[in-house]
Design a protein around this nucleic acid. Structure first.
Length: 509
RNA sequence: GUCCCGUUCGUUCAGCGGUUAGGACUCAGGAUUUUCAUUCCUGCAACAGGGGUUCGAUUCCCCUACGGGAUACCA
């Protein structure tokens, strides 16, 4: 073989290898893509009341997981309970989610608009003998329940209609007897691996043949969720722990309908202060209430994320983006969590002091406008300056109202605790007078000049500067706590400061 | 009643067979701030009880107690 031929031979091998490698890689890539199905999650509230923090936490974890996995976060309104669902509630849920920044990636699915699909699923089960018509009356069933209870026996559906013959069914149908449709629970054990609760196994004998269609023909939740989740291609069902015991029933439905069973992740419940379940009548606060209390969306979300999940960082303050990065199902715990309003407020305060004044001003402006202190035309520059001054001592936005008032109005009341603590010197009125007269000699209202003047007066009378600073603060703000008092004086101007000093003097008499 | 799940400071999150049981919030004390708040430091404070398994259990198993969920023609 000549050199050229050898070279040709090698060249061909290389080309061949290259093609083969490319082909294998492409094949692998295609397969991976097919298997690494894109993650789809959903938050599915029912519009039977306000959106409360338990719901928000569920929405949040769905959102975090979707974002982290590059998946899609969907919303479904479960309004099959026509008695209790209202449109107003639905709108409120939507706007609350928007405020929180948890709006869905796709148009929300309204469950009631899909009842046809639910009915078809029930029909399919009926045809395949996986469900059956039950002609038992509500009253009869109720009587069975009462009887079981009086005998201290667990109530189970009698199974009366389970094995009705074709003829019997037809006869009942002919007489126009109303019926419900029950799902026939197969024998066996239903197992699944929950993302939080790990291995769960339930003996199917424990599950009654539950109703999937009411006697008026409307579908029931258990059926609707399964059909909708399957139709929406939901891959991960992330919801409250109260659904853990429903899951085996739903898995059985998926199987009966020939649908792919999604993965499940159940979240521990958020409990009221006394450890009881949160409900509308019991400690459940709506998102609106938190908004009114002065929470930032990010602060509320941060606080809620820390319920049932923790990163064990010394400072548990996370932005939404940081939460997306850090969130991990392996760290979600199984214990129900009581939320602590104090800690929630502290977390919000941390977010507040982390934020720039210019970002907070849009939240503060309407508060001050509503209070009637500023016009819509109030300059943003001043607003941001004021916000910046106040923000270090504030945990909740509405404290901008409480502690911001003195920037616009003379205080009408004074903090008695502060007076007791700082204004007990017998000479206090004398000091206030001296301060107010000495301020009159100033040419400008600058913070530096006022501070220098105050010090000079203190030195002259051989007293500590704090003997004058405290009365000044109380006179100007009405509170024992405030940001840099000289900066506040600068904003207010000499005339106002002097007037307020005199007001305090009068008050002390 | 039955089934499922859970149980670490007051609250929350750590710990995944050997730790002085850790962090955060709250509370108390101190430092800084000429003052208050912020910030920083220090402190108080917990493995529900009983059996196993193991050289050794907060950690694994069982029982009891307590709590929660499900058991609906609610979702």
């Amino acid at each position: 073989m000549t050199d050229t031929r050898v070279r040709h031979f090698i060249f061909h091998i290389t080309i061949y290898d290259f093609c083969l490698c490319t082909f294998i890689f492409l094949l692998y890539f295609l397969c991976m893509n097919q298997h690494a199905q894109k993650i789809r999650v959903r938050f599915a509230p029912s519009p039977t009341g306000h959106l409360h923090i338990g719901g928000v936490r569920t929405a949040l974890f769905n959102y975090l997981y979707a974002r982290q996995m590059g998946g899609t976060y969907c919303l479904r309104i479960e309004d099959t309970d026509k008695e209790r669902s209202t449109n107003a509630n639905m709108q409120e849920i939507l706007s609350a989610l928007e405020w929180l920044g948890l709006s869905p990636d796709e148009t929300p699915v309204i469950q009631s608009e899909h009842s046809q699909e639910h009915l078809e699923a029930a029909d399919q089960l009926l045809r395949e003998g996986k469900a059956y018509r039950c002609f038992c009356t509500k009253e009869g069933l109720e009587a069975d329940k009462i009887k079981a209870e009086s005998e201290k026996r667990a109530y189970r559906y009698s199974g009366r209609c389970r094995e009705l013959s074709e003829n019997e069914i037809q006869a009942k149908l002919d007489t126009g007897l109303p019926y419900t449709v029950r799902f026939r629970i197969p024998e066996g054990i239903t197992r699944f691996k929950d993302m939080v609760y790990k291995d769960i196994a339930v003996n199917n004998e424990e599950i009654d043949d539950f109703i999937i269609l009411r006697s008026d023909g409307s579908p029931i939740y258990q059926l609707s969720v399964v059909v909708d989740d399957a139709n929406m291609n939901i891959t991960h069902v992330i919801r409250g722990e109260d659904h853990l015991s429903n899951t085996p029933k739903q898995i059985l439905l998926y199987l009966a309908l020939g649908k792919k069973v999604p993965k499940f992740g159940h979240l521990p419940l958020i409990l009221a202060q006394d450890g009881k379940r949160l409900s509308k009548r019991h400690g459940a606060s709506s998102v609106d209430e938190f908004k009114e209390m002065g929470f930032l969306p990010e602060g509320l979300l941060n606080g809620l994320a820390l319920l049932g999940w923790g990163d064990n960082m010394p400072k548990p303050i996370f932005s939404l983006d940081e939460l997306i990065k850090r969130f991990d199902f392996a760290r979600v715990n199984k214990k129900g969590a009581i939320f602590d309003p104090d800690k929630l407020a502290w977390i919000n305060g941390q977010h507040l002091s982390r934020s720039e004044a210019k970002d907070m001003w849009p939240f503060v402006k309407p508060l001050w406008q509503n209070a009637g202190w500023i016009d819509p035309g109030f300059s943003d520059e001043d607003g941001i300056r004021y916000t910046d001054l106040l923000k270090s001592r504030i945990r909740l936005l509405n404290e901008f109202v409480l502690y911001g008032k003195y920037l616009f109005k003379d205080p009408l009341t004074f903090d008695m605790k502060a007076i007791d603590k700082h204004l007990q010197s017998p000479d206090i009125k004398k000091y206030i007078s001296i301060l107010s007269t000495s301020f009159q000699s100033l040419k400008s209202s600058s913070a530096e000049e006022m501070e220098a003047k105050l010090r000079e007066v203190a030195d002259m009378h051989e007293i500590k500067a704090s003997m004058l600073i405290h009365p000044l603060r109380i006179a100007v703000t009405g509170f024992g706590v405030s940001p840099d008092i000289f900066k506040i004086c600068e904003i207010l101007g000499l005339e106002t400061v002097i007037r307020r000093l005199n007001l305090l003097k009068i008050f002390l008499v």
